[in-house]
Nucleic acid binder design. Structure first.
Lengths: 361, 361
DNA sequence: ATGAAAGCGCTAACAG
DNA sequence: CTGTTAGCGCTTTCAT
């Protein structure tokens, strides 16, 4: 439209369109602004003239100038770890959360600024606010390590609105949206217990992720509820990568062969799948010799053989919720109290956790 | 730092920091600007004083104001289809490309603005430039449909720098970075032919994606080179989803049973996996009764049983290349000619394409 | 209901 | 080498 305007071919400067619109509508530039923002009070008839003139000349206000004048970037920052090569996180997880955030932000007139955090890079989140690149931010893949805590404390200190996704920090009242991982692994363990498994091993992720601790707690809780004694040596640790699951297979295989273990819960699908492959190579059949449950219900859980029982987490909704809450907080005038949301999860039963056996040994 | 400054507690306005810095360093505000941008010529000694003063007061220039003054947003837009629910694209693909773009943009001082395109939404890419939200953009998941061609033509008409990833438009000289899909499926077909398979079926994606056509051509070319007659009924069409692969299994099974087909190439891994599952349910074993090759070498190709032979595409590098070329183009003064880059792919042989049979029927 | 004018924080001539 | 000054395009009082 703009490119085809007659005036455009006459060669006048870009910067003068606004004035042209005002002239064409027979009003001042201030009124053009008022109309296009729906702000102030303008007579319907003049408003119409302005809108028409703008359309005719193909005028669209510069978001850049608007935001500068308003001293708001209009951007919601999303900080996330660099994914490729290091496949500790599932791309499924990020895609879903990101989509949720994106759709919500868009609905509310915010743009998404994607900020990759490289592994070695200092976490200077506050600077993003100082430079006015973002008005608020959502942090994915945060870890409970000192540098992260410092960076977040600095954000809070500076009154910068931010929200963590899937990571809580003990002792700090940060805004958080999380899935109820504890309930998830509790369900998983219960599901196995109900089928008669009693020797359940737990392949967890690193303690830097609060999710790992939550899952462990849920597992322990279920055992206690079923009056099964918790055994520390039934807890193994991986790093959420497929490889780490694969490597633990040796250990798990031993436990199975010695009769110490008859079922396994893995803290995510990637490790579950690695474990499955490792066990298979060692001659142990998942779904027959041992039951297995994963976490995340990523798209690969349907693709394994046998299909993997898993905990479905509403990642898309987690993203929506985080963005929505954060934006609320950003648009409110009086400071609201920090939120800590937990979304429900669901056990999806598939063949990997259903053996024909009803009891063990 | 800023939050802890002594002056801060004295309650002066945010907006005056810059002046304070200038005063503290005993220079004008213009010199502060010069120093912080490394522009102009400033005596080393004064520069040092300015840097110190800025550090001491915790002053960081506002990117928002800078960009406004420079009339450049500093943003690289990335347009991509909304992923969740409709799983036609692999999240792996997007994560990799996006990471490549992100890292490259960051190195060159650009920020990434993520723009989700909802399915029903009009493709008004040009407006993003008019509003000065972005200075250039990369388009992922574009399709060869009239509305897309129009939107892109408008961009080109307006001289807006943009680059397509993994999609070319016949007859248009748009900037493109693509993988050599044609060579990929040619390799795939050759690989099968070399092992004695002669009845190779091709499960392709929709024609709206140039990749689909490229892959088909490579497949046909390999057949011709091996003097095997191409048969139109050996080409099936899915929509790149796992489900569509699954659904085609019935048809493929028939072809296999009737002895018309002994190997299959699927245009992506998702369909290959769906097909694999479908065939399995129909009692046909991939890697034994039929050979199968996928495309993308996504992370799931290693997780199937048997592992899936696939075409590895350097998606991360595709992202880097697209961003890099586009940024070059944006920073050059004289208009350069359009580029059309094709990155090499590689066949990754796994068990799904290696049967013990050496010939057929 | 509308116009005039002051600024948002920074850059970039242009002087000196 | 450095200070002065005039904008960048928009919003927003403050008058009228």
């Amino acid at each position: 439209m703009y490119a085809c305007t007659l005036d455009d071919y006459l060669g006048w400067e870009e910067g003068l369109i606004r004035k042209k619109v005002a002239e064409l509508a027979g009003v001042s530039e201030a009124t053009v602004s008022r109309v296009l923002n729906g702000a102030g009070t303008v007579k319907d008839e003049t408003a119409k003239r302005v809108v028409d003139a703008a359309k005719q000349l193909g005028y669209v206000p510069s978001a850049l100038a608007q935001r500068f004048a308003l001293r708001r970037s209009g951007n919601l920052g999303v900080i996330l770890p660099l994914l490729p090569k290091v496949n500790l996180f599932s791309t499924y997880y990020f895609s879903e959360v990101l989509s949720g955030i994106g759709v919500t932000a868009k609905q509310r007139g915010y743009d998404l600024l994607l900020l990759f955090r490289e592994a070695d890079e200092p976490r200077d989140y506050a600077n993003l606010f100082r430079t006015q690149k973002i008005d608020g931010c959502i942090i994915l893949g945060a870890q409970d390590v000192p540098t992260e805590r410092e960076a977040l404390a600095e954000l809070k200190e500076g009154q910068h609105p931010f929200c963590l996704v899937n990571q809580r920090f003990e002792g700090e009242a940060f805004n958080t949206v999380d899935a109820d991982q504890r309930m998830g692994s509790r369900h998983a363990a219960r599901h196995l217990l109900q089928q008669g498994f009693r020797k359940i091993c737990f392949l967890n992720g690193p303690a830097e992720y609060s999710n790992s601790l939550d899952r462990l707690k849920g597992y322990q809780q279920a055992l206690i509820e079923a009056q099964v004694t918790f055994q520390a040596e039934h807890v193994l640790i991986g790093n959420y990568s497929r490889k780490s699951g694969y490597q633990q297979a040796v250990k798990v295989a031993e436990l199975i062969r010695s009769g110490d273990v008859d079922a396994v819960i893995a803290a995510n699908d990637r490790m579950a799948i690695g474990l499955m492959q490792g066990l298979k190579e060692l001659g142990i059949r998942v779904g027959e010799d041992v039951a297995l449950v994963g976490c995340d219900d990523s798209d690969v859980s349907r693709m394994t053989e046998p299909p993997l029982t898993s905990i479905r987490v509403p990642f898309y909704e987690v993203g929506c919720e985080a963005a929505s809450r954060l934006l609320d907080m950003m648009t409110e005038t009086e400071p609201s109290s920090p939120f800590e949301v937990k979304l429900p999860v669901k056990l999806i039963e598939r063949a990997s956790s259903k053996t024909t056996r009803t009891t063990t040994t």
